[in-house]
Amino acid sequence: MSIINNINKVFDHRIRLGIMSILMVNEFADFNMLKELLGTTDGNLASHTKALEKAEYIKVEKQFIGRKPNTRYSTTKLGEMEFKKHIEALEKLINKQ
């Protein structure tokens, strides 16, 4: 049961896992970069970033580049920790079977 406990419900979606993967290896990523890499729609991506933000796994910064609004994302310490735990749990599950 302990293994199942480490599987994080918040990450239980392809797009969310994808967002976290990208942010783990990049200092930050903006909305368009995430959208391109994940091949998803604006609305879909926005809802998933919101969920991760609500869990305080990612930070959102809104700023202006010139006159264009730009939203960029980065992981929080908590998010990094939870992501690592989640990956370890996935690995253990795979090894067990």
């Binding site: 993967s21 990208i22 290896v25 890499l37 994940l38 599950l93």
Partner: peptide
């Protein structure tokens, strides 16, 4: 069946990490 999905998850994670940083 399920473990196959997790494997796919992991390889997708690895792929995204590489694609986004290299």
């Amino acid at each position: 069946m399920e473990s196959k999905d997790y494997l796919k998850d992991l390889s997708e994670i690895k792929d995204l990490m590489n694609k986004s940083s290299r």
